[in-house]
Amino acid sequence: MNFLSKLKQNRHEAKLLESQKPYLEQFFVEANLIPTQAVLKLLSSTKNYDRTETGIQQPSTLLDLPSDKKGLVLVSPFSLNLITFIEQLYSDPSICIHFINEGIEQIPFLQQICRLKRVFSISHKEALNLRQGNSKQSLMFICVPEFHPKSLKSEYRVMINEHLCKFSSFPWLLKHKQQLPIYYLADDQKLSSANQPTTTFESMASYIQSYPSHIFSWIRLHTHRVEELSKLFVSQANQLEALIRYIRPHLTTLDLQQSLDALGKNKLALLSENLS
């Protein structure tokens, strides 16, 4: 990449990082993000492995996997911690990273990571159905909780700096489907067992609260707040109700009053359940 392209890319990353600030401020009134340069240096180092890959396989010292396990599911917020871990992991040419990242935009540094040769952006459906191709390569999935779909019906609730948030159980579904161990990336770069989702999310919340400046996905975390999910839900329910009321006068055989009654009742029930 020539100098001007690199400069343009760096400016773009800086702009994306800056754009996270209003969402960070929803959680933490006085907090700042780390300078872009620190992360760009890390990414540059990671890209070097693509240039100097020799094909010599070295056992990874980071992943202490049993011999019958050909990979793992890693749960981590999108953070400096994760990018640092990826940089270390990527030095092992046997590691192939599948990053579950479906239409995620406006996240700094993500595109650069996904452009690495052995990092593949895949959808949730692809992740569940993926089969290991090369037996010499470890199948590693990265699940960033704030990148997964969410709704008021998402299974897990956790407080992040006094903001109630909800996250889905997708990483554990993936673990079950792929028959892989699941780990959480702790802030000391060690892998902790993530068999208990509640404990995992509590650890994640604790990390986010301790190092808010190290998190790069505030725009996504913001959408996991129950307050935001409720607004989205109300908007969707209102539009569905309006749609039914709009088409009803044109239908001669269908009444739809029962649907409207069910909508009203269930909307209130779901909102009450989540806001209590």
Partner: peptide, 26 residues
């Protein structure tokens, strides 16, 4: 997306789908 919201609200998805089809044929 509409049918996903219908399911989230535990409503009768078939009734809504029939209504939408009836409207588009109207």
């Amino acid at each position: 997306k509409i049918l996903a919201v219908v399911k989230n609200l535990n409503m009768n998805a078939k009734e809504i789908e029939d209504a939408l089809n009836a409207f588009s044929n109207h």
